[in-house]
Design a protein around this nucleic acid. Structure first.
Length: 466
RNA sequence: GGUCCCUUCGUCUAGUGGCCUAGGACGCUGCCCUUUCACGGCGGAAACACGGGUUCGAGUCCCGUAGGGAUCACCA
């Protein structure tokens, strides 16, 4: 396939939501697969609703996901003169015409058309000449849609879809204030930017027919379309702001790794046989439009969590620490000491083993910081009930150790239990409770070892006193 | 309401007329491992929306029904 060009064209009216992120990912993957270009165009023709904050959120969201665009980020608004030029050209060649209808007039006609179950085509000025008075009024420019025949678009996802031309309206190209509409702008920009494949949300499928006719009116090649189904919420309802639609930044904050998000989004609505864990390299190699599902898919946090645990375990202790260091220090209120860092690094394998999201790692790592006195969970309190004397004895026993090594510590605890004829669990559980306060943790001997003699005994004594 | 699209376990999906007694993954669940919590290992329950065709044979093709979705702006 020769020079593939794809684009992601969000309107900057809010954050980069999950559906947009997936659309961007698919465009990016498709372009990378063919060694083509992936462009980012901001559709900011609606001046009232577009904000710089939204643009920044979109760009940073894509950055987080690792979806780098080629070339400059373009603004659709800045192309307005060119859009106008195309509208004027269409007017000159008779492919478009001036419409003098007022907003009220149009709305009324639309309402009655719908009441009667008829198609509203907005064509009240299609074959009418204005008198001198109306000719002086502001006018919009509408495309003269073909009335006969049908339009078929060959969609890579939806297949071949046909619509009767009689159901297409004479859409407005240029508003009466002279600004271009989205319908005009997308088509002109996609053509000017050399876009070969338009991969976008299903919600644009109906627009595709109208845009097709605009391409045709200009005599331009029509790009290939691929309309991907929308993502729904866990309840099957459309993902809207009321329904818990979140920006990708929110997922970052929840502690998901971008690679997990990418893998999840990729598999949500696309498949490659039974493959679940797919590296970005493989994704680029395997991605195609044919294997995109046609039905809307539901968002599922459990599966995202599962992928996230997988990708977290792929990271080294050092990488994981750097992922959580900021949050951890924020919680502690002080920077991490070298000793604390080393303890966390040593404990990381067992910390990541019981973590689903980054905050779980913060929890696990904080155990290895100087956080005395610990606050106990209810369960830990129960385990320590009436054990203060025993804990004190254990603390003394351990304090006597001169060579703090796992084997030695273990032997000390074993003999402590034996001497008192206690089951090993009866000794270890209270110790664990005193050391962790009840937080999930791994092997107890390892915990003692990493904590170090001083800190471990201090924590035990904290519980022995009360 | 008009137009268009979709329909396999709870969820994401494999499946392109015989390999399907429908496979995988997440979740759920039983057992094992075990000093907590996890991890891990081995099992289990769980789906072709419904009704008609076509065919020797249908999850796979056709029609209808039901359900879901998208869209119908001088928004994008």
């Amino acid at each position: 396939m020769p020079n593939v060009v794809t684009r992601f064209a969000p309107s900057p009216t809010g954050f980069l939501h999950i559906g947009g992120a997936r659309t961007a990912l698919y465009n990016w993957l498709f372009a990378r697969h063919y060694g083509g270009e992936f462009l980012l165009r901001i559709e900011d023709t609606d001046r009232a609703r577009s904000t710089d904050a939204a643009i920044a959120a979109i760009v940073s969201g894509m950055e987080w996901l690792g979806l780098t665009s080629d070339g400059e980020v373009t603004s659709q608004f800045e192309q307005a003169p060119r859009h106008r030029e195309v509208a004027e050209h269409l007017l000159k060649t008779g492919k478009a015409y001036k419409c003098y209808a007022t907003a009220e007039e149009t709305a009324a006609l639309r309402a009655t058309a719908r009441e009667n179950g008829e198609v509203f085509r907005g064509d009240m000025w299609r074959d009418r000449q204005p008198d001198a008075e109306t000719a002086a009024r502001a006018y919009a420019i509408r495309l003269k849609m073909p009335r006969d025949g049908e339009t078929t678009i060959k969609d890579s996802v939806q297949g071949s879809v046909t619509v009767q031309n009689s159901t297409l309206d004479d859409m407005i190209l240029l508003r009466s204030d002279g600004t271009p509409t989205y319908m005009l702008a997308v088509v002109v920009d996609d053509h000017d930017m050399g876009v070969t494949h338009i991969i976008r949300g299903d919600d644009h499928l109906n627009n595709a027919f109208r845009q097709y006719q605009l391409f045709a009116a200009m005599g331009w090649d029509v790009p290939e379309f691929a309309h991907i189904p929308l993502i729904h919420g866990p309840d099957g309802k459309k993902l809207s702001k009321r329904h818990g639609a979140l920006g990708v930044d929110a997922y970052a904050e929840m502690g998901f790794l971008p690679e997990a998000m990418r893998n999840y989004l990729l598999r949500l609505g696309w498949s490659h046989g039974d493959d679940e864990i797919i590296t970005t390299q493989q994704a680029i190699e395997w991605f195609n439009l044919e294997n995109i599902g046609k039905g809307p898919a539901r968002f599922d946090f459990d599966k995202l969590d599962n992928l996230n645990t997988h990708y977290m375990r792929q990271l080294s202790a050092i990488q994981l620490l750097s992922c959580v260091q900021n949050d951890l220090e924020k919680r502690l209120g002080v920077p991490l000491s070298e000793a604390e860092k080393n303890r966390i690094l040593a404990a990381m394998p067992s910390i990541v083993d019981r973590a689903k999201r980054l905050p779980d790692i913060v929890d696990g790592a904080s155990l290895f910081c100087n956080i005395r006195p610990l606050t106990l969970t209810e369960k830990a309190m129960k385990l320590l009930e009436g054990q203060t004397a025993q804990i004190a004895d254990v603390a003394n026993e351990l304090a006597a150790i001169t060579d703090w090594k796992p084997d030695v510590v273990k032997a000390a605890i074993m003999s402590f239990a034996q001497a008192r004829d206690l089951k090993i669990g009866k000794v270890m559980q209270p110790i664990r409770a005193a050391l962790t306060g009840g937080a999930p943790s791994g092997d107890l001997i390892e915990l003692l070892d990493i904590l170090g003699q001083e800190e471990a005994i201090a924590r035990l004594k904290d519980q022995a006193i009360t």
